[in-house]
Design a protein around this nucleic acid. Structure first.
Lengths: 254, 254
DNA sequence: CGGGTAGTTGATGGTCATCAAGGGGGGTGG
DNA sequence: CCACCCCCCTTGATGACCATCAACTACCCG
């Protein structure tokens, strides 16, 4: 797990297509996460700047691409798949600090070294920006800075919620909170999907995220099933049968 | 604890002193935390803008001044004392997400409501900025935005460390980490103080910060004393006798 | 078919929460 | 000034929750 070679990329540089009139068209215009990501602050006129700076990278499941403590050379924007962010203790204990889904920006760090590791949960595509190019973009597009501040503030709020969960919630409350969070995250605004969830991560990842063990997560899910709260399908499918019951649990009633 | 009236200020507006030549001098020029706080990005020429926007507020120990969930009307900059930031569950369980010391900026939130509560640990002085005035400052001083992003990034790193602590460390490891953090925070660069610490917060606060109970914190400190790691003085004084032993503990060896 | 990974379930134990009692300091009021 | 109270802290006894150890199933892939 920790002896896995990290920072190995399968990169393919963006192709810049020169249009008939000399105008540049490129990947970014058709990027599916552009509307919801930080990239949206850069207007159509300047989008070529973005494309030149970005390198699309595909990362297979389980592969690490940010190593905790390594020099922070790049920033990333997730365009598909799910990334787990984590910190580890010398003896191998691991805490997943968050899951990054499409549209999320990775690498906010003042230090010259990454403060956390990152690993692909399923197949992940990211846009990679070098530190230098990112700095140029920040200088030229002040809006980008404001957007990143927003992003950071949101993550800060999420982190505070997670601290409350880790410090003060019971196992049942943690799992309930997790399932509800996943439900909200998977729901595009105005869309219901009958409580059906597809969790890309393993029980081990969930455990490392919630500060529990695999066994406790498994037992808790089984207990929730026995209470008619959820249905546990094959693979990574879970269906929430009673949001209300989970809400009661997550808010802190045993 | 939760029925305490919050958001009660003892404010005194900044006095703007008009100098002989018509130049404005004011509190901000003599502010002791200016060099280390976000305010430092606003140069001497524009400092009057800052002073006009800020209201100095004194908060007595134990008084809350940000209520979780209340409309986010103001931002704060701590100028002296220590503030605890926290989130709570309906049944009263509480998690302190951080302690803000002089120079720290509070209120980063995209939402219209505060995501956390804040309460003075000892006597606290803050500079208060209304949301509107802060927005004006952000528009006029782009550097301020970059500085806030730095601030947020640092807090994010701290939050990730705290998640690792809460999710994966034992009680002893937590207390050791806490003492070392406090030591580093209290050491001005290039200054040693013989491991002597003055913790402004109670055992209860420490417990709520570390995800433990008062009793466990107390027992753990007693155990560390019995091991010759620390000395527990009267009041809130603690002396670290062996940084090395605490380091071993904090890194994760029992 | 064999091996590896992921998940579930059971038995047991350890760590830390809970319940309880007592000490010490600081404030207020008699 | 001292009594009284309240808060904070400490220490002890007990127990609950969850980690650990272990066995077993299912599934995937060669």
């Amino acid at each position: 797990m920790s002896d896995m070679p990290s920072c190995q990329f399968e990169s393919r540089p963006r192709r810049i297509v020169i249009g008939a009139g000399g105008a540049q068209t490129d990947f970014c215009t058709t990027c599916s996460v552009r509307p919801t990501s930080v990239c949206s602050v850069i207007g159509p006129d300047d989008i070529s700047r973005l494309s030149e700076a970005a390198v699309e990278t595909i990362i297979p499941p389980g592969r690490g691409f940010i190593e905790e403590g390594a020099p922070a050379t790049d920033f990333f924007n997730v365009t598909s798949g799910t990334v787990k962010l984590f910190k580890a203790l010398p003896d191998g204990r691991r805490q997943i600090t968050g899951f990054a889904s499409p549209g999320h920006f990775l690498g906010l760090a003042v230090s010259d070294n990454y403060a956390f590791g990152a690993e692909a949960v399923d197949t992940v595509r990211v846009c990679r920006f070098s530190r230098d190019k990112m700095a140029d973009l920040l200088d030229d597009f002040p809006k980008l800075e404001r957007r990143l501040l927003e992003e950071a503030s949101n993550e800060l709020v999420a982190a505070q919620n997670q601290m409350l969960l880790l410090g003060r919630k019971t196992a049942r409350e943690r799992v309930a909170s997790f399932l509800l969070d996943q439900m909200h995250a998977s729901q595009l605004p105005g869309q219901e999907n009958g409580g059906r969830l597809h969790l890309p991560m393993t029980r081990g990842d969930i455990a490392d995220y919630l500060g529990l063990t695999i066994e406790t997560v498994s037992r808790t899910l089984s207990w929730m099933r026995s209470q008619g709260m959820i249905e546990v399908g094959k693979g990574y499918a879970i269906t929430i049968l009673s949001v209300a019951k989970l809400d009661v649990l997550a808010a802190g009633n045993s």
